[in-house]
Design a protein around this nucleic acid. Structure first.
Lengths: 220, 220, 220, 220
DNA sequence: AATGAATGAGGCTTCATTCAT
DNA sequence: GATGAATGAAGCCTCATTCAT
């Protein structure tokens, strides 16, 4: 009886199996949080997230003891989907630069730029779970990148991080609208940027190539 | 009687000439506000802005009765400088596309993207003062744009607004860092985007050309 | 499941039954607020009311989201008691004018005049709850009045509202004392006024008879 | 030259003669203060009084170093007028009770009840200037009273203070209206009260006779 | 496990009062 | 003497977080 109700296993002190309703609640919370973060920024009151999720506020705290934890869960879930798509494209797309294009526009649809405002404040960028998904994403995109470079389709002085940083910036919600007008600007401007990425024989770019390290905390 | 500085006009009850120290304070406030908005986002406590400016909090309220007014003043002052630079370049630069490049990188140095997060909330995008400087900026940049287009140096399917929107997005402060690492990314990514803008003979872009209208409140 | 106390109705998200401690707090707040309004006027700091009630300030806001709501609750509770007393006297007192006297002095003990200063400001005099108790009070006092009039004990040129307005005025807290010295003035002056009400064969009064409408917002 | 500009007499250190504009300002301030106290209660911001008077706020402080001083000046000026009227009626009116009636209605027109809310807070009820005008008023009204009593027109168990307290209460501004509707209620209710005062052969009143002492600070 | 209630810290804003011109 | 500007203390209100049911 104890194994189905979610009580702790006396040996490990970890729940043998989470209760079904708890799991459902957890998912509802993450979904609601993502929506509200995108719509209203990273400062939405916790109580509002709870209300949108249809649960009490204390339940939210049971699942996510602080704001940083909830934010991290949302970020990880989005980055996971983006990484999975990059991995899929690595095997599925013949044209190497076209794979990069596909990845970029797909990631835009995941509203990856909307995550940026969440990463401020007390957010721990070195949390293991986050580091893991970042590495996974980096690996997948790097593979796409190198395939295009080997085919001579990628300007030689750009790097993986350049794409990811610019992608984040260009998909950030426009102020006042509350959301990004994907159809009018985002794909359009990403396309312009990709054209610049591909452009062969251009003079060297200023600055240093961005890398995924740049998502790490700043150094002096 | 009328020549004494600081005398009030009895009819309007407004000072004939603002006091010197009040003017100095006002400028200090705007400068401090701009710094703190860029560093810490649009929600910095009013009291902190006052402390940074070296004045009491109530003095800040005397000059700017609400947050929207202060934000507007900061926005207008930045946009004015950017517009002035565009006008200057219209007469000063020989190579038409090079003028567009110059404008873009100069505007980046003014951290124009840092203004974006301020424009949310109760901000009135139709305030006359703001509309005026927006029109002025639009005119100046459009002139730069058309000169480059006439010279056959500008991809035909892009518009003024495309540049301004992308410029705003690519110069937004990166999360967590508090400021944008201009030397590493911004100029680099702007350059990539500009290469895309110039790129001749490209296929048509998705979406519609952005215009400065897109800074207006969204329509249904 | 449905029988458990405190369970929320999933449809309405409102508690099926309010918690016992919350109810106790609510009552404490209303009592404390009434005391402080009477003692210190309608502008007493919210935090002081909370302290007097022995709760945190935010708890007060949970129960009464703004000052007007709290004031209304206090007013309604006092008017309800006064109305109930008038209804009781309608059946209990033999001498018709004596019933009016009893009502008047009882209402004075409820410090009805102390409510007056609360009714200013953002107070909504047309709120349904307030209108309901006003109508109830009007009905009960009018019955008392008419009984006295039918018995030839009431001066013919006075009306219900005259009594209520004068009652309110004569029981207002005297300035500086913080409270009305009931034993010294109030009952004494009410008695004088009642003598004037009863006085037969007097000449017509100036002005128009006051009615309960006069508690409504003023008209042009 | 020094005597006309308002500079101090070196011997007494008191201004030889106040400047004409200073006097005019002082009067404007008292008039504006009275209006605003009546209209908006005793808590009107000092700056608003200054604006209504058409002067700067610091000028107001020069004339009245704190709120209590300004309030006292207003109170004294009203009470002086009322006292003067009582003195005038002592010699001018033949019918002794009619003189009391006249005094009462005249005092109502001076909105004496509107002063009540001012007397709270830090107001010093023992200030010499206030005590003087209070004594003067008391004397004048007592004379009116005794004349009526001697003529057998005044109920024997009432006192001067009863009239003054009730007069203050019945002329207080009604809540929400911002001002008292003199024509509808005040004179009417005063008349009822006066009828009660005159009413002969009534039973003894409850309580003790009020006296002007009751305007003094409360005793334990 | 889930919930509604309670709480105190902190930002916002006003205003009496003082200061500099 | 008169003025507009400056100031800090205090009230209002929200919200992240904890508690009791």
């Amino acid at each position: 009886m104890s194994s189905v109700t979610g009580t702790a296993d006396p040996a490990t002190r970890r729940p043998a199996r989470p209760r079904a309703d708890a799991l459902r609640n957890r998912e509802r919370i993450v979904a609601a949080a993502r929506e509200m973060f995108v719509e209203s920024g990273p400062d939405v009151p916790f109580d509002e997230i709870a209300r949108r999720a249809g649960i009490g506020n204390a339940t939210l705290y049971r699942h996510f003891p602080d704001r940083a934890t909830l934010v991290r869960e949302v970020v990880v879930s989005v980055m996971s989907r983006v990484a999975a798509d990059a991995e899929r494209l690595n095997g599925a797309e013949d044209d190497p630069f076209q794979a990069v294009r596909r990845f970029t526009h797909n990631a835009a649809e995941e509203r990856i730029g909307a995550l940026c405002p969440m990463l401020s404040g007390g957010f721990d960028r070195e949390h293991p779970e986050l580091a893991a998904v970042r590495d996974r994403l980096e690996g997948a995109v790097r593979a796409l990148f190198e395939r295009a470079r080997s085919a001579g389709r990628m300007r030689p002085d750009v790097e993986v991080g350049d794409l990811l940083v610019a992608l984040s910036q260009l998909t950030r919600p426009l102020p006042g609208t509350g959301c990004l007008d994907m159809d009018r600007f985002v794909h359009r401007h990403l396309e312009l940027f990709l054209d610049g990425l591909e452009a062969p024989g251009r003079s060297r770019l200023p600055g240093t190539a961005a890398t995924l390290e740049d998502f790490r905390p700043r150094r002096a």
